[in-house]
Each structure stands twice: as C-alpha cells, then as structure tokens.
Amino acid sequence: MSANARVLVAHPGRQHSARLAWALDRVGMLAEYWVGVPLRGFLARPEPGLDLARERVVGVPWAPGLRKAFERLAPAHLGPWGDFLSSRLFDRWAARRLRSTRADLVVGYEVGCARLFEAAKAKGCRTLLDAAAVCEFDPARVWRPRQSPRLARRVAAVKRAELAAADHVFTASEMARESYVRAGFPSGRVVSVTLGADLGRFRPPEGRPTGPVRFLFVGSTVERKGIRELVSSMAQLVERGSKARLRVVGAILDAGAELARAGAPGVEFTGPMRGADLVAAYQAADLLVLPSWEDSFGLVVAEALACGTPVIVTDRVGAADHVQEGVTGWILPAGDAAALADRLSWCDANPERIRAMRPACAESASTLSWAAYEERVVAAVRGVMGDPSR
C-alpha cells in the first residue's frame, strides 16, 4: 500500500483526533475527517494551528446534541447512556457514509467504530483503532468504572467487536500499549504514540511561585482520577496546620461534586478553565497532582511540565514515562493514599526544593510538543500502511 494512501479519521467526539487529522492533512494523506461536533463551531473555533480544509471536514452536530439532551433532561444515572447512544448512532452514520467514500485506511475510536470497521472490511480497507483508553479486557486492570450492568455489557460487546475488526491499535502510552498486549492483541500490531501539548501556549512564567505551597489538580473530578484520595490527603495537611492549598480545575462531577458539597478544607473547586486562565493556573502552581487509578496518558502532565510545574502522578498514568523521579516529579503506586499524603507533606515542608525543579520540568517537555506528536503519528501510520499483515 502506498505511503500516500488516503486515510479516513472518524470520531464521535473529538479528543486528539483533530491533531491526527491535521498531521495527515499536512502530508497529503487525509481523505476526510468526520467529527461529532457542530461543524460551524468547530471551524469557527479550531484548536490553535489546526486549519483543515473545509471540504475535508464533516461535522455531525446531532452527536453532541444527543449527549447534551441526556445531560439536561435525563436523570443523572442515565447520563452515560447519552454518550453511548450518541457514539453508536455516529458509528451507524459513518458506516453508511463510507460506502461512497474512498479510503485505504480507516481510523476509528472506541465505542464509535464497530459498524464502521465492518463496512471498511467489506471494502477492503485496513482498520486502525486509535485508542484513547487502556484496554477494557486487560486481565491486570485494577480500575472498573461504575456503570449499570446493562450498559457495561453493551459497551464491552461493542469494544470486543471493534478490537476483533481492528488490524492495528495505536495507544497514547506504553502503559496503555501493554494493556492491549496482555489482553491478547498481537504485540507487533500495537503502537504507542505519545501525545503532546501546545508549547507555544503552555510555557514557564517569568518568576517562581512564592508563599505557601499551591497544589493543582486539572481534570474531571471523577473517581478514576483519584480525587477522593487527593482531597483526603489535603485535609490531613490542613488539620496539622499547613497553609498549603489545593485548586481543583475541571468539571465538578461524580466524587468531586459530593466532596464540594460536603466542604473540603484547603480545597478550592473552580470548575473548568480554558485559554489564558488555564495556563495561568499551571504557572501559579507549585505542583500538579494527578493521582489517577487509571489514565491512558494524562495530557495535563505534559501541559504542567511545559509550564515548568513539577508533577505527582501514579504508576497507572501513562505520562509517568516522562517523569524523572525527584527531578521533574514523583511516581506513586496507584491507590496508595498513605504514599500520596506523605509526598504532599514532604512537598509542603520543602517549597524551595520543589520550586528549584522548574527549569528541569520545562526542559523535559521539549519532546512533548504537538509538532513532535505529528511526526510520530505520521511515521506510525506509514508503518501501518507498509505492514502486509491484515
């Protein structure tokens, strides 16, 4: 298959698919990009540097509309069904559209490409699952999401079908790659492609933070992100008289909503931040803390390092591969609340030592740019196209 073959990218939401589409478009390999966001809004407010040709972008506005309808009208426990049904409808739409679309390789995303891959196989196209999460079927997986048994069965069935139809899998980290290998997917057909950050936006501030230590958490406040363990550790610090503070930036959901209602000493829940406000939050923090039970990569780690902010992560965060112990941050066992509390306490007692780590953090982020990701992912796609195995 030619290295200049045409690649279709189809995502029911967006995630990092826009970056993949942009990278492929730059080298003349993108056939079309189908994305489950409103077309007008996506093109009017593209991610920085992403200027895809309008004729190659197909927006599907009803996909996010269905998700929002569930969020606003359905009981909270039915919210995950909105995501699932939206992705399944996108998949059906994409499979039908593929019949009249020329492509040599079809890139799909979890829960949104089972029928698309089936249609691709019927046309003789290769299939690539660009997996944003660890493998659902990893026998060593510790974290299991809380969802209704019926929804869990439906999700698992779709993911099994997608994996069975995938010729290749891309993951965001080596940790995620290993989860697919343990689940039985052939090792030679799983490739780790590290994500990146916008180093033009996320960069170190002019000076260093001063005063009491400021911890930062960025992300949705769901159980999987370890927010309970983090807030509990902060409570212990405050009870001992510490003036350290934790800022929680992101959608206040699930465990975070419960903790915010109950009142968390030393913790400020700000809600989501974007643009310059988010950059300023990273720059003002002494440490980013991401104590996830499971995170395929953890883009916030790359963003924090780019701002010169050290990080505390767990060994179940894919971006831990880019953390140098004691130099740019620390890696703790996932779920070890005592280890997390001890590390926060040490950092609180040694503010100058953690602030001295900032130059090393900024330097370490040089390989985590989106430009570097684009080079890696294009090379990986070309490698897939040159692989004769099906």
Rank of each mutant, 00 (worst) to 15 (best):
V381E: 10
G266K: 06
G65V: 04
S100K: 14
A339M: 02
A371H: 09
V317K: 11
I331K: 04
A379E: 15
G266A: 13
A319S: 08
D348H: 10
A131E: 06
L305A: 04
P272H: 03
P75M: 08
R224N: 05
A197H: 00
A285F: 12
H168E: 10
H11Y: 03
W293C: 10
G49P: 14
F297P: 00
A379R: 04
A302E: 02
P359H: 11
G211P: 03
A172V: 15
L66N: 07
S187C: 11
A280N: 04
R261P: 00
R97D: 05
P38C: 07
R390I: 14
V313F: 01
L199Q: 05
A380Y: 04
V311E: 06
R390V: 13
D198C: 10
Y33D: 14
L344C: 09
R203Q: 05
A380S: 10
R146L: 02
Q147M: 15
R316W: 10
R228E: 12
C307I: 06
R177G: 12
F215D: 02
W62P: 08
N350C: 08
R245H: 07
P265L: 14
R355L: 02
L163F: 00
S100E: 15
R189H: 00
L230H: 00
A319V: 08
P186E: 02
A337K: 11
Q324Y: 10
P149M: 08
E363F: 12
A281E: 06
M175I: 14
W346C: 06
W34C: 02
A244H: 06
V169N: 08
K225A: 08
V218F: 01
R144M: 11
P388H: 05
A140Q: 15
D336Y: 01
A264T: 01
S148H: 09
G211T: 15
R240K: 14
G256E: 04
A131R: 01
D321E: 15
V311D: 12
E303L: 06
S173A: 10
D198N: 09
V218T: 00
R97M: 09
R150E: 10
K225N: 04
A3T: 15
W143R: 03
E352Q: 07
V384Y: 08
E47T: 02
A304L: 04
F185D: 00
T101A: 08
C347D: 13
E55H: 08
C361S: 09
L332V: 05
F84W: 09
T367Q: 10
L105T: 11
C125M: 10
R115K: 12
V106Q: 04
R228N: 12
A23Q: 01
T194D: 03
A304H: 01
V111Y: 03
A284Y: 05
Y109V: 06
P12D: 13
A304V: 07
V155F: 02
A63C: 13
V27N: 06
F84S: 00
S87P: 06
A360D: 13
E47D: 07
R358D: 07
H168D: 14
L50D: 15
L116E: 09
D104I: 05
A264F: 02
K243H: 09
I312Q: 10
P388W: 13
G335Q: 06
W143K: 04
A10S: 11
G250H: 05
V191W: 15
V60R: 13
G200P: 15
S242I: 13
E294D: 13
Y282K: 07
A10V: 13
R92F: 12
L116N: 12
G13Q: 08
W370G: 01
E268L: 12
S345P: 14
V384F: 00
D286N: 14
R358S: 13
V248I: 11
